[in-house]
Simulated assay, not measured.
Amino acid sequence: MRVKAKDEILRERILSGADKLFQKYGLAKTTMEDIAREAGKGKSTLYYYFKSKEEIVDAIIYDESDRLFAAIQSAVAEAPTAKDKMKALIVTRFNRLRNLTNLYNALVQEVREALAEQCVNEFSIRYRKQYDLKEAGIIKSILQYGIVTGEFRIFSEKELEMMSFIFMSSQRGLELDLIIHNKLDEILLRLNFLIEIMLSGIRK
């Protein structure tokens, strides 16, 4: 078993403390002073590891995102068919997002704030782009797998890119509507229905 270095342990303590504060008070109301106090360290120690609150938020989201995609890739790899792989992606992603409380709540809160203010902040855009690239890559690989196994018709590279984008955008739009109307329990049911509709059009 790998022994964690002192710096790694302290970094994790800072992120864990910040995570608790973000969940309790929100991103905007939590200060660097609050985070340092929660970690039991001075501000100078905190700034040694993170230059700003935004950098801490980035670290929390990226760490949780790495775990999320590891779980998705594992579930997708175990599913036997392309259709099952697509369902595994959707179900695992949603369940992990609900379990990763800070990531899910942060995304939900940012959606609501962006709608209220009619704007999207720089962090949200940067995170979303990186997240979307990863997920689009997984969706594309599932479509390619379906072509190889004969489940789906043959498509060109450009068509695969387009389908990955359309599937991901449709999924995002559906989630957004359900988040706005506070109907999270209906997401999986409707996402599975979306999968059935979209895959029925590309089956061989």
Rank of each mutant, 00 (worst) to 15 (best):
K134C: 14
I202G: 03
Y131F: 15
A106W: 00
I56G: 13
I90S: 06
L143R: 03
G40H: 03
Q118A: 02
K24A: 09
K204V: 10
D185K: 00
K134D: 04
K183R: 07
R37Y: 01
R203G: 03
M162Y: 01
Y145N: 04
D185M: 07
I180T: 09
I9G: 06
R190E: 00
A5G: 08
L199T: 01
E196G: 14
A116S: 15
E12Y: 08
A82N: 09
F167T: 05
G201K: 02
G150N: 04
F152I: 00
F155Y: 12
L189A: 00
A114N: 08
R2Q: 14
S169H: 13
I56V: 04
A88K: 14
V91Y: 09
S52M: 15
S124Y: 05
M1K: 01
R96K: 02
S44C: 14
A77W: 13
L103M: 12
K87H: 10
A59W: 01
S170V: 06
V76Q: 03
E159Y: 08
M163N: 03
Q130M: 14
D185N: 07
F69R: 12
M163L: 11
K85A: 03
K51Y: 07
L199S: 11
E12K: 13
I154T: 09
C119K: 14
L184N: 11
S65C: 10
T30A: 02
K204Y: 15
R172D: 15
I35A: 11
S52V: 08
D7P: 05
E196H: 15
R2V: 09
E122F: 05
A18R: 05
G42V: 03
L178C: 08
L184F: 02
F167C: 07
L97D: 12
V91Q: 02
M198W: 11
L184Q: 07
E151Y: 04
A79F: 07
M1Y: 05
